[in-house]
Design a protein around this nucleic acid. Structure first.
Lengths: 103, 103
DNA sequence: CTGTATCCATGACGATACTG
DNA sequence: CAGTATCGTCATGGATACAG
């Protein structure tokens, strides 16, 4: 395998990973909401009409693991957590805007 | 629902559609190969190691329906068809390049 | 050579009950 | 309030045989 081919394959894999990460039934809208303001779990439950806890928790965890989203514990009692975009997450916003133009 | 909210929802849906369209096991690499040169069915079968006819046919059909890819019949006998990017498909290339940088 | 039809396996998604 | 555990359902992708 040539160096060129190997690089092309790696490129494709990285893009594939990000596409997979942001696709699915809820993650695009979840990410979109996160671009607007920091959000709490129950607030997200209300805005993503039809989602359940399990699916929301999984989606949040995946975006968190990819370092697109991060948690902040606002208070312990009552437990109060906010999710917000990381810098890496914010860097994705202009890419989404381009996608909207193309569609 | 306000006009603003409706527009946000539509934005999300369009992005979601494109993400869904380009995600999946084979479509990112299929699209990537298509950016390099016009390609034939059996050539794609060889390059996408592990894919089968059914999956390739489905992927090609979806990209074609979305007007990202188009078929050209080169000859009828023997049947010889090439797939290439449409203008809309080409407009996606810089977006992919940005995604690669972010990852 | 370029597909379609059919059937089956796997993984994503969802409902519900439970926990710190 | 913010999750996790468990289990059932359904859509997506793959294997194989057949067709223009």
């Amino acid at each position: 395998m040539t160096t060129e081919n190997r690089e092309e394959k790696e490129e494709t894999c990285r893009v594939q990973g990000l596409l997979k990460l942001l696709s699915g039934k809820w993650k695009p809208e979840l990410f979109h909401l996160a671009t607007l303001a920091p959000l709490r779990f129950n607030s997200l439950m209300r805005r993503l009409k039809g989602i359940n806890k399990q699916s929301l928790a999984t989606a949040l965890r995946e975006l968190e693991d990819a370092e697109l989203l991060e948690k902040s514990v606002i208070s312990e009692k009552p437990l109060h957590i906010e999710y917000q975009l990381t810098e890496k997450g914010k860097s994705l916003i202009p890419v989404f805007q381009q996608l909207e133009k193309i569609m």
